[in-house]
Design a binder for these strands. Structure first.
Length: 427
RNA sequence: GGAAGGGUGGCCGAGUGGUUUAAGGCAGCGGUCUUGAAAACCGCCGUGGGUGCAAGCCCACCGUGAGUUCGAAUCUCACCCCUUCCGCCA
């Protein structure tokens, strides 16, 4: 969400930013509405001022028992009311129109974000490790899981429909192990506080992170009017909504391991095999709340925390800086981490780390009072996956598979799996 | 689901139609005093908006929205949220 005053003072910057996002200039149109709004406000306030003065005089006249004067003033105020009502209607109209445009506009990219149309214009930031060599043709994750009878799409389909899965046995256990491992790493070594949040939330919480009103179709909504969270970013970021934090010299860092629910409305026919794109999946989320001057450094730190998960699992990945055309609605800059999947012979997104500046903070009304200062400021928010558990499971299966169709358990996961070193059935 | 009570500034909390500004306290900031600190005392101290070069002036905001009134934190209606008790329930 934008501050219209900022647009007034920075119309050119605003339009240039939108242009980099592939959007047309909006400042001229917005400033016309804003001008109408301010004219109405000024008119209404002038009338209110006159009314307040007259009302006060009425009280004083009645105190003196001067009823003639009181009646004369009452007539005066009555005349003001028509003008006021008219102005109020115009003011409400302009405010509604202004807000409707503003709340549907995405965040502006930071200067260093590469300009581009889609994912083809993303720029590699760095990479880690190397592609593992295989002396056999590596299978895709679902070929392994289905062969073991531990990844059951047919049962899931009978129970829930398409884009759901039932995991069983050691595969279910490995999914759980991955989530525990991530949570432990971020809480014990990276300074994040573990949170167990609600999965059903109010509309305003979803609005706060920018998923509403524009992306309602991507979400599941309950009969009670709640939304199922598509990511723990919603709950973790909203922990500071409508708050004025006393101080923010150190970032607040939250992590949560939760199921995530997505309708995948726009993804019909895409990634239909396997567990890559599901209506429900586990994700370990990272969220930081910082002062404005710290969000850039925190973004790099958060990215490193997410990458560390893959490093410890011994997985090859590359980190991309998303171009303007591929960034999410609320983001000012996003890094995607893409893990190597030998079964698919490609890199696939496994984490997305974004810094949102004060864009979400304005929607949530999340502020802080700098130490020793009187005025309040909006916080900066950051969110990142650390990591998507289902996709990490895919990566482990495909990268650690053996020629006989079994999978070696990565060292770091073994303590979480009762010391098991290998899972799956030999073909 | 039923019943009752409640929602006032960063926090607590008074305030049931006006004639001074939402009292007072806590926290915060500045000062006096002090070697320093604490205490005490003095002063400042809500948010958003309009207007103005500025100092300032003005408007709105007491959960939200309507209404009554010359005038609403206060009266009326609807809604939202919270708490407690009962019922149901893992």
């Amino acid at each position: 969400m934008y501050d219209i005053k900022w647009i007034r003072d920075n119309a050119k910057l605003f339009d240039e930013g939108l242009a980099r996002r592939g959007l047309t200039a909006r400042s001229a149109e917005l400033l016309v509405i804003d001008d109408e709004r301010r004219k109405a406000v000024t008119a209404v306030q002038g009338a209110q001022e006159a009314r307040n003065a007259a009302s006060k005089a009425i009280g004083q006249a009645m105190g003196r028992k001067d009823m003639a004067e009181a009646d004369r003033l009452k007539a005066e105020v009555a005349a003001l009311k028509d003008a006021m009502a008219e102005g109020e209607i115009e003011q409400a109209r302009a405010e509604t129109a202004l807000n409707a445009v503003l709340e549907a506009l995405p965040n502006l990219p930071l200067p260093e974000v590469p300009t581009g149309a889609d994912e083809h214009d993303n720029v590699e930031y760095r990479r880690h490790g190397e592609r593992p060599g295989f002396n056999f043709a590596p299978k895709q994750h679902f070929e392994l899981g289905e062969a073991w009878g531990e990844m059951d799409f047919e049962a899931a389909s009978r129970i829930s429909g398409a884009r759901f899965v039932v995991l069983r046995g050691e595969l279910a256990r490995m999914e759980r192990a991955l989530g525990q491992f991530m949570l432990d790493l971020h809480t014990r070594e990276h300074g994040y506080t573990e949170v167990s949040p609600p999965l059903l939330v109010r509309e305003q919480a979803v609005y706060g992170v920018g998923q509403l009103p524009k992306f309602e179709e991507d979400l599941f909504k309950t009969t009670s009017g709640h939304y199922l969270t598509s990511t723990a970013e919603v709950t973790l970021s909203n922990l500071v909504r409508e708050q004025i934090l006393d101080d923010l010299t150190q970032p607040l860092r939250f992590t949560a391991l939760t199921p995530c629910f997505r309708s995948e409305a726009g993804a019909a026919g895409r990634d239909t095999r396997g567990i890559l794109r599901q209506h429900q999946f586990w994700k370990c989320e990272l969220v930081s709340i910082t002062a404005p001057d710290q969000s850039g450094a925190e973004h790099e730190r958060m990215l490193s925390c997410a990458e560390e998960v893959l490093k410890r699992l011994g997985l090859h990945f590359r980190t991309m800086t998303l171009c303007t055309g591929d960034m999410g609605f609320s983001s000012a800059k996003t890094y995607d981490i893409e893990v190597w999947l030998p079964g698919q012979d490609t890199f696939r997104e496994i984490s997305s780390c974004s810094v949102c500046g004060d864009f979400q903070a304005r929607r949530m009304n999340a502020r802080f009072r700098p130490k020793g200062e009187r005025s309040v400021q909006y916080v900066h928010t950051l969110n990142g996956s650390g990591l998507a558990v289902g996709r990490t499971l895919i990566a482990v299966l495909e990268n650690y598979q053996n020629a006989d169709g079994t999978v070696t358990v990565p060292e770091v996961l073994r303590p979480y799996m009762g010391g098991v070193e290998q899972i799956g059935k030999a073909a």
